[in-house]
Simulated assay, not measured.
Amino acid sequence: MLTSEQRKAIHALQQKVEHADRIKLKLNWDMLASESRSESGTEDYFHYNAQGDLLGFLAIYQFGNKIECCGMVDPDERRRGIATMLLEQASSDWLKRTERFLINSPVLSKTGITYCKAIGAAYAFTEHQLVCKEVPIPFTKEGVRIRPAVANDKEKLYQLDKEGFGLTANEVKSLYKNGGAEGNYIIEEDGQTVGKLRVDRQKKESWIYGFVLTKERRGKGIGRAALTDIVHREVTNGKVVWLDVATDNDAALSLYKTCGFTADGAQAYYELEK
């Protein structure tokens, strides 16, 4: 796993970059903080100066058959080849091992978007970043409840991810290698599993990932009831809640807005050719 010193240095650099560029980076801190992070030794790439200051960082995140990477360079040290060096190291390790190698950049990051285009990466898609800071208006539906997932729920989680996101069995299992069922919640209707989501809690923020319902239970108010329940808990506990949604997923965007979320930035993805 990453050392506490490495995590502190990454966080400090993230704050400096976000303040200078007025953006929000998607660094997936739940994965960076995982105990099994970097077991292979090739998930995180660092560039330090002679004094030991972190000037550049790039992280690899594996999601089934695709790789996502997010990098950053100290604003005072750009145009010195640091980003290119880090990406070359990462692509050398990962490009032939995955079907898709995606580079993530905030839409508002002029340097990030310009860099992706300059290296010939092809635009793939964009995700909205949505935020909820206020306690949402309660919405209840009889028979619907949300509970923490336990070890015995793993197969249910696997099945929901396979059906909801079109993943293979091996791809789904790779998503859970870092923490098992921890952080996941099961959505039930009348005692039957009908969906799931995952919550990553940080100091001041909570991020919602992997929200999915079985196909036949969508559009019936179940998702709204589950989301307002979990978001109510998080905001009441002092958290700002974030989630991502594809820009072409109008149904999901509409649902999230009814649960108190508003758009606050977007993340663009560019695909690196093999």
Rank of each mutant, 00 (worst) to 15 (best):
R7S: 10
V73W: 11
L25M: 12
Q15W: 07
A83G: 06
V17K: 07
D74R: 00
K96H: 13
E43F: 05
E39T: 10
I113E: 10
E88R: 12
Q62C: 04
S91M: 12
G81P: 11
L13M: 13
I103A: 02
F57I: 04
T114H: 04
P75L: 14
D76M: 09
G81E: 10
R37G: 01
D44A: 08
M85Y: 03
T111F: 02
T42D: 10
D76E: 14
K117N: 13
L86S: 03
D76G: 03
E18N: 11
D53G: 01
L58D: 01
D53F: 02
L87Y: 12
I60G: 00
D30Q: 09
C116L: 05
D21C: 09
S109L: 01
Y115C: 09
I113S: 06
A12G: 01
F101Y: 15
P106Q: 06
L32S: 09
L95V: 04
E68A: 02
A9K: 15
L13E: 12
S109T: 01
K26C: 10
E77L: 03
R80D: 01
L25Y: 06
R80Q: 15
G81H: 07
N104P: 00
A59K: 08
Q51V: 03
G52W: 05
N49E: 13
G56R: 11
E18S: 05
S38M: 06
E99V: 04
H11G: 00
S91Q: 07
G71D: 06
N65L: 03
I23E: 12
F63V: 10
D21Y: 11
T42G: 00
G64F: 05
L86K: 01
G56S: 10
T98G: 02
I82E: 03
E35P: 06
N65D: 10
G71Q: 10
A50T: 08
T98H: 02
G64Q: 07
R79K: 05
R97A: 03
K96I: 00
T98L: 02
A90M: 12
L13R: 15
N28A: 10
H47E: 13
E35W: 11
P106A: 03
F57Q: 01
M31V: 05
S38C: 11
I60C: 04
E77H: 14
K16Q: 14
Y48Q: 04
